[in-house]
Nucleic acid binder design. Sequence first.
DNA 1: TTGTACGCGTTATCAT
DNA 2: ATGATAACGCGTACAA
Lengths: 343, 343
Amino acid sequence: MENVTIKDIARALNLSTSTVSRALRGSYEINPETKRLVMEYAEKLNYRPNPIALSLKGSSSRAIGVIVPQIANYFFSQAINGIEAIAYNRGYHVIIFQTHESYEREVANVQQAMARKVDGLLISLSSETSDVNHLQDLLQRNLPLVQFDRVSEELNTTKVVADNYAGAFAATEHLIKSGRRRIAHLTIPRWMSITQERLAGYRAALEQYGIPFDENLVRYGTFGPDEALGMVDELLAQSPRPDAIFTASDRLALGALAALRQRHISIPDEMSIIGFTNLNVADLLSPSLSTVVQPAQEIGQAAAERLIELIERKHRAMPPNTVVIPSHLEVRESTRVASSTAS
Amino acid sequence: MENVTIKDIARALNLSTSTVSRALRGSYEINPETKRLVMEYAEKLNYRPNPIALSLKGSSSRAIGVIVPQIANYFFSQAINGIEAIAYNRGYHVIIFQTHESYEREVANVQQAMARKVDGLLISLSSETSDVNHLQDLLQRNLPLVQFDRVSEELNTTKVVADNYAGAFAATEHLIKSGRRRIAHLTIPRWMSITQERLAGYRAALEQYGIPFDENLVRYGTFGPDEALGMVDELLAQSPRPDAIFTASDRLALGALAALRQRHISIPDEMSIIGFTNLNVADLLSPSLSTVVQPAQEIGQAAAERLIELIERKHRAMPPNTVVIPSHLEVRESTRVASSTAS
DNA sequence: TTGTACGCGTTATCAT
DNA sequence: ATGATAACGCGTACAA
């Protein structure tokens, strides 16, 4: 029942550990007969190579690190699900680290991941992170690194992201076509990649339909709790009032929804909401909100696939590129009604 | 840049590795002066002991394994969040394994976790699991093991669970007090601990209010997708129809909600729903459903705390016990309305 | 107080 | 085709 080692097999078969080791990995310079013997015995004893010893030896640890802001988040939990699925059937394990949106913890987590000798690292930046030297170091050490969702252009790595620009464009366009003109944008910290991409899509749609961009309609949040209410109140204080809200996250969408209810604003008559969310949340919100659905799981899968490619073909120089996974607009009643109102 | 080892320090300071090793861990039998020297130099070089080497050496790996059915699940992602929080500030890492509700993968995951030399294991059983020999083995090897949420009584370990009985009782009682009499129960596989506890609470409430238990009103599902519709249709075919549904999971609650909408059953006039969910989902469902809120994060925290206690043997032979975290009923409009209807 | 030698499980290198 | 040995980084019995 105790763990079987190469030594055990060697002793039992009167061989040396090196022979057993070679036989096990099917070395061509070994007697087929011996090989068979070893294989069978190993099978019988249910031998499994000790990954710890392998890691120490310096070869692969068969583990990949995943650094995310939070696990208890619809997007990331689904992304991790996708990552784990790919990793599992490629024989890798997933070690998870949470930054809780803290730069310090991100740095610490990177160090820990290195100490654990992960074969590669998947990372989605914390909202506090602007300096990426801790990751530049890794690249210089040639560690396989893939960024996903929240990425930094300063890092020359493969990136896997949702099509934030197109998603934001589609959402804004849909609101415009539903007859809305004063479309507010509730979003997340200014400097993040996803914030800027979504803002750009929002602006582009406004421009295309000849609606002037109004700085006052854009509100940047942090990831703090319950901040949507304050933001919504600020918007409601303006005149004329906004007639729609496009939010950059599921939390803000839900927060805005709750805030409008609390202020007795009727949806969709007085206001429409479209949020950037993901499948789980979209289902839950049905039929009250239209949403831009982020393919969280696919992003995770794609990121894991790229990383494992990188790990296993380290020698070959694959140029880093950016993989954009489409996000699609899922139209629900609230905006449909508004749409008919507008026509 | 490169990772600093004890050897590097020893060479630089003209000491032996053992002296350095002892100095680093503050052995009392070392020259204070030498100790200081070593400490300072180690600090300067930002020395970190290699966890892999430590694991191989056989002492602690400072990692705990967490085996759950799924990560992309509201309950488990929050539970993991709680686990990670505790683990992090106790200096442990979390390695996550998903069983995807498969017994085979659960067994494989347990083996993998052992191979990774985790210091302890937190597990929530897959829905397929009835044989627990793979875990009995661990206990015999004296591996710290804590079960949470979905537990097996056959295993003599510490268990951390929600108060499923009381939660189900409260939900059922609330429906009864709202005037409902034919309360259906949509639940999950029969043999699971949580299923039985919730069923018991449901039955106890019926009994207390003199409502006969009707086997036909209880439907057992698997964890398959979209199964709620079929279950609801079966219930609707009965006469008299049920006038309320108590579901054992958030998925079933949402599924039942969708099914009733699809069949044009008005809620709460014709039917009430109460589901076992957790905070995230409860918020999202608001204000349409009352829910029994499961303290997922607290369960994770409590489980991690117990496990780490076990690992560090704070208390010598601590007898395994069961920690029950209260779950509370959160009443929302749908059943309130029904309540006024009934009066 | 400090150093030497060994072992954890494995593979790579150099014999034989 | 197979065996002996060193090495990965660390802790510790044993020696000095």
